[in-house]
């Protein structure tokens, strides 16, 4: 479904943010991308829909080679890739319904979108998705009137409005409390399973990643250092990903806090 080959990204003259990343994603496969801050997780998924331009390498989505597309073809390809963001990235002053419909902007014409005259099928889909994410009566609320968990549900529904072939999920729980984090991760993994959607989920929280994803990819300084099943994340592997000193110190601090 998704194939990444020898992907590199360099910001200016800094060290490589992504260094020869190779990754294959089968249809319906959901992977968690873990790694310390600055490891390049966000850069990697933004390279896929080219919110960040890769320096070199190739990315295929199905039969489409994404890195060589011109801007018009890229916009078409982006419609197939739904994205869910860390701090929700809703347009705050628009209503929940408008935020959902913004997922259709790649499909409808300028005046239809500007005048908010969307096809009935889009409206139906939006209401169905609001029901599915558990916000049935929120269509006309303004996005800035919602709580964090509710906003992320809108963010998920917006991504699904695109009728995507895959999902890119960037730290979906980073600004949520632990309970809401679990609910959101559960919702995302359920939806992926229902629709057979493949997804790459960037996530800081290792236990959460293990709980909801069977395959884990560990990134460290732009390189993939682990790619395997969730059960394979031993202490040594985590040390590999997060670095020995930091990892040991933080785990001991956690134990201390729990005791």
């Amino acid at each position: 479904m998704l194939r990444i080959e020898a992907l590199c990204k360099r910001y200016g003259r800094d060290a490589l943010a992504l260094d020869d990343v190779r990754l294959n994603l089968a249809a319906g496969e959901v992977i968690a991308l873990i790694g310390p801050s600055g490891a390049g997780k966000s850069t990697l998924i933004r390279c896929i829909n080219r919110l960040v331009e890769p320096t070199s390498g190739k990315i295929w989505l199905g039969d489409t080679e994404l890195t060589s597309l011109n801007s018009r073809a890229l916009r078409k390809a982006r419609r197939r890739i739904g994205m869910i963001f860390q701090e929700f990235a809703l347009v705050e002053r628009l209503s929940v319904m408008e935020n959902l419909l913004s997922g259709r902007l790649g499909y409808v014409g300028f005046w239809r979108a500007a005048l908010r005259k969307f096809p009935q099928s889009d409206i139906d889909r939006a209401f169905d998705l609001l029901d599915r994410v558990g916000l049935p009566d929120y269509a006309d609320r303004r996005a800035d009137a919602l709580s964090g968990g509710q906003r992320q549900r809108v963010g998920i529904a917006r991504a699904l409005m695109q009728t995507p072939d895959m999902l890119l999920v960037d730290e979906p729980t980073a600004s949520l409390d632990p309970r809401t984090s679990r609910q959101i991760m559960r919702l995302i993994s359920e939806i992926c399973a229902e629709q057979g959607l493949p997804a790459i989920i960037n996530i800081h929280d290792v236990p959460l990643a293990q709980r909801y994803c069977r395959r884990i990819v560990g990134l460290r300084q732009g390189r993939i250092v682990y790619d395997g099943p969730a059960e394979g994340l031993s202490a040594e592997v985590l040390t590999d990903i997060y670095g020995a000193e930091d990892w040991e110190a933080s785990s001991r601090a956690d134990e201390g806090a729990e005791a």
């Binding site: 829909n49 919110l51 916009r75 078409k76 390809a77 982006r78 419609r79 890739i81 994205m83 963001f85 990235a89 809703l90 347009v91 628009l94 408008e98 913004s102 997922g103 259709r104 902007l105 790649g106 499909y107 300028f110 979108a113 500007a114 963010g155 917006r158 695109q162 890119l168």
Partner: peptide
Amino acid sequence: DAIRASGAPPGLLLNW
């Protein structure tokens, strides 16, 4: 970023 990621053309990016 979010609107851009949905494949919206530049005019709609401004509008939305």
